[in-house]
């Protein structure tokens, strides 16, 4: 199981790098789909099966298809992008690297205590299954769940309105 963890982490990081450095936007989308599948694999490893399936359906399915659709629609599948100047790119990479060093340095200090009472009762492994997550979602978080449908309605109306050619 440890080797699966390392393999998925390696896959996620490498394909995330390829998203950033790939010239062609189509290749970026495909590498991003690979990253999402690796992250979904991590969810399965952590026994969050519902989120793994939702991740694949929503991200790798819907969102990435939308990205591909827009790239094809705008006819952008060429690598005609001019690069930023080398100084700006170097500054960006150094800034990201410094942030990563800061984060890792901060995380070295923390120690996360495992909740051992749940482990003893054996409930710890199935919190991510559909049955238990559905119970949590529809009992404690029912109002945010309904509010998210309003959010979707607003997003849909907004997308249609933005996409229209001329608004009277």
């Amino acid at each position: 199981m440890v080797s699966i963890f390392y393999f998925l982490s390696f896959l996620a990081v490498i394909s995330a790098f390829m998203v950033v450095i790939a010239k062609n936007p189509i290749h970026s989308v495909l590498y991003l789909i690979m990253t999402f599948f690796a992250i979904a694999g991590h969810y399965v490893l952590m026994n969050a099966q519902f989120l793994a399936v939702v991740n694949i359906i929503v991200y790798a399915g819907a969102i990435m298809v939308l990205f591909l659709f827009v790239i094809m629609l705008l006819n952008l599948n060429t690598d005609a992008e001019q690069n930023k100047s080398i100084l700006i790119r170097l500054t960006g990479i150094v800034a990201g690297g410094i942030l990563m060093i800061t984060l890792i340095g901060a995380f070295k200090q923390v120690s996360i205590v495992k909740d051992t009472t749940f482990y003893a009762s054996g409930q710890a492994y199935d919190i991510g299954l559909v049955k238990n997550l559905g119970n949590t979602l529809f009992k404690e978080f029912l109002v945010p769940f309904e509010l998210s449908s309003i959010l979707f309605l607003a997003a849909m109306v907004g997308a249609v309105m933005l996409g229209k050619k001329d608004i009277k």
Binding site: A48, F50, L51, V58, I63, I127, T136, E140, L151
Partner: peptide
Amino acid sequence: FSSYRSDGAAQVFVFFSMVVAAAEVAVGLA
């Protein structure tokens, strides 16, 4: 964190975060 702490609420929060991301992508691509 949710699976290390055995807390299902965080996974529901991740679900809502995915919902918001989907709405954001639809508007952003438009």
